[in-house]
């Protein structure tokens, strides 16, 4: 299992660079991860990230974009504005979780 050092911490990551141990994550690290992909975290950014963390804790699966939108009540359009390009994957990365597996 590869590791990488981010903000002075050694993290377990997969072959793409996604964290594989959610226990190694906290919000300070999340902000660092966001910076690395060009996102400056604001309260608006934290809302979906916190949902991802709490949903993952229960479902053991990273929520898809649609699930974030319907369950956390954040319009999909806003998620694209907050995490441009590939919002589902970017949010998963910032939240220290695997990429979502679901199709929709």
């Amino acid at each position: 299992m590869p590791t990488t050092t981010i903000a002075g911490r050694t993290l377990d990551v997969n072959e793409e660079g996604f964290m594989t141990n959610p226990e190694q994550w906290d919000e300070a690290l999340g902000a660092e991860l966001a910076k690395l992909i060009g996102v400056d975290m604001t309260e608006a950014h934290w809302a979906p990230i916190r949902f991802l963390r709490s949903d993952f804790a229960v479902q053991h699966e990273t929520p898809t974009l649609r699930r974030v939108s319907t369950q956390a009540g954040i319009p999909v359009k806003d998620l694209f504005a907050l995490f441009p390009g590939k919002p589902a994957k970017k949010m998963a990365y910032v939240a220290g979780l695997p990429k979502p597996k679901g199709c929709v």
Binding site: G17, L36, G85, K89
Partner: peptide, 8 residues
């Protein structure tokens, strides 16, 4: 150098 997924 941090290992980061290439999103873009």
């Amino acid at each position: 150098t941090p290992f980061v997924p290439s999103f873009d």
